[in-house]
Simulated scan of single mutants.
Amino acid sequence: MELRHRYLDIDGTRMHVAEQGQGYPVVFCHGFPHTSYIWHRQLHAVATAGYRAVAPDLRGYGRTEAPAQIEAYTNAAVIGDLLALLDDMGAERAVFVGLDFGAQLVWELSLRAPERVAGAVVLNNPFAPRPPRAPSEFWTKAAQRHFLHLSYFQEPGVADAELAARPAEFLARVYYSLSGDYHYLDTWKNPPGLGYLDVLPEAPPLPWSWLSTAEFDTLVAEFTRTGFTGGLNWYRNLDRNWELTESLAGRTVAVPAYFLYGENDPDMEGFSGRDPLATLRANVPDLRAVVRVPDAGHLVHLERTAAVDEFLLAALGDLGV
């Protein structure tokens, strides 16, 4: 059950992958600001149950290379990385698990290449159909009224410098603010024109009940080394992603899907529409489970690890892979 690290080259981009176990592949897709390490507890649980648990550092994160061009970070490009990873493993299909940007990847992958997805297991970010207008048209109006990270992250170099100058403080503040221990949408009470560290709450000293000092230090070391530009470039492609999905408008997700969310998740509350579960059910016809985890937030797989591991293993058992 040793954790293995390896690299593969995908069209000139070197990707780092962490793996544990043997068997049917289960691929974990992280979000911002995370790396593959954010899944290490789930890798152990899934590998112990007899599967091949695989967590890549997605493009621009951790030990995977970060292309210089902003447009290199579209969902379509990263989905190409994931399909190349499957090919490298010799796997026709895999179960994909996603959170945050990783959830968006899993949903879009399920639309673009459903024949490669045995099942989609998504945490906190429900599927929603392609909106009629570009995302920036929505967030620009909101950002005129209050601070909004989606808008603040758009200008290259601005957030990059702020966050890279204080990586440990930023990660502590953002992880805490997104958890069930804080109400993240309180950051909207701040006026526009501020930096992210100006609006995030102070974090209590580590360790926390759901995150150890050693785990936190591992993540800090990676972002201290790499900075945050790779991850921020994902935000700078939100409109480009919208443009590239015109052919997917109106499609539903046909693969078997399982959805779990934290009761206090800010994406469910403020970024997923008025009735995200109704929208999810209407657009994912083979939705086999919806689970709400009490008192948890956006980092639900760390905050309530046992509940998430149980959910994952139940989904894999239901799929029969």
Rank of each mutant, 00 (worst) to 15 (best):
L43N: 03
L43T: 05
H44G: 02
A47H: 12
A49P: 09
A49Y: 05
A49G: 02
Y51E: 08
R52I: 01
R52K: 14
R52S: 12
A53N: 07
A53H: 05
A53W: 04
P56D: 09
L58W: 08
G60D: 01
T64P: 07
E65D: 15
A68R: 14
Y73E: 00
T74I: 06
A77W: 03
A77V: 14
I79N: 13
I79G: 08
I79F: 06
G80D: 03
G80R: 02
G80Q: 01
L85M: 09
L85W: 11
L85R: 07
L86Y: 04
L86R: 11
D87K: 12
D87Q: 13
E92Q: 15
R93C: 14
R93W: 12
F96S: 13
F96I: 04
F96Q: 11
F96M: 12
V97N: 06
V97A: 13
G98R: 03
L99G: 08
D100H: 05
F101H: 08
G102N: 11
G102E: 13
A103N: 02
A103G: 12
A103P: 11
Q104G: 08
L105R: 00
V106S: 06
V106P: 02
W107N: 01
W107Y: 10
E108K: 13
E108V: 12
L109W: 09
L109I: 03
S110Q: 09
L111A: 12
R112M: 14
A113D: 03
A113L: 01
P114W: 00
V117K: 10
G119W: 09
A120I: 01
A120D: 06
V122D: 06
V122W: 09
V122R: 02
L123W: 09
L123H: 09
N125H: 07
P126W: 04
P126T: 05
F127T: 06
F127P: 02
P129A: 10
P129F: 07
R130L: 15
P131G: 01
P131E: 00
P135K: 00
F138L: 11
T140Y: 04
T140G: 07
K141N: 02
K141C: 02
K141S: 11
A143V: 04
H146L: 00
F147V: 00
F147T: 01
L148F: 15
Q154A: 00
Q154C: 00
E155V: 12
E155D: 10
E155Q: 14
E155N: 02
P156M: 14
G157E: 06
D160L: 05
A161S: 13
E162P: 08
E162K: 07
E162R: 05
L163S: 09
L163K: 11
L163Q: 12
R166L: 10
